[in-house]
Design a protein around this nucleic acid. Structure first.
Length: 119
DNA sequence: ATGGTGACTGTAC
DNA sequence: CGTACAGCCACCA
């Protein structure tokens, strides 16, 4: 069973492990990753982890978006790139810059239904 | 040590 | 719809 309060290194490890499993065309949110990694509420730290893997990674970093269904990278200068990668996978973004999170959000099979409703 | 910042989020108005 | 605020916690000056 997973420890409810893993240390920072484990959080990063779990976040990256989950990230690597997101199927093409599907997304996860920062808060969701924090929850599944055992750090509920630590969405900002997940964002920090993401920031750290921007140095030439093979991980599908573009599949992590915010809880509103939009990318959070516009102010970083590559929001268009992220949306472009997702669009190439079949994700549709409306004029508001949001996608259908309810339909696109991916949950690991082992995530308990109660976890999903909590989120 | 202390305070500001940020790829966030839920609640309140 | 948008703005504001409070939690969140690693990092950095």
């Amino acid at each position: 069973m997973l420890s409810p309060l893993p240390d920072e290194a484990t959080l990063k490890q779990r976040v990256l492990a989950l990230l690597a499993r997101i199927p093409p065309g599907r997304v996860m949110t920062y808060g969701q990753l924090a929850l599944l990694a055992g750090h509920p509420g630590a969405a900002r730290q997940v964002g920090y982890v993401m920031n750290g893997l921007m140095n030439g990674t093979e991980l599908p970093w573009q599949r992590v978006i915010n809880a509103q269904g939009a990318v959070s990278t516009d102010k970083l200068g590559f929001g268009d790139v992220q949306r472009g990668l997702l669009v190439a996978e079949g994700v549709v973004f409306g004029a508001s810059g949001k996608c259908d999170l309810k339909a696109r959000q991916w949950w690991p099979d082992e995530a308990a239904p109660e976890q999903q409703s909590l989120f």
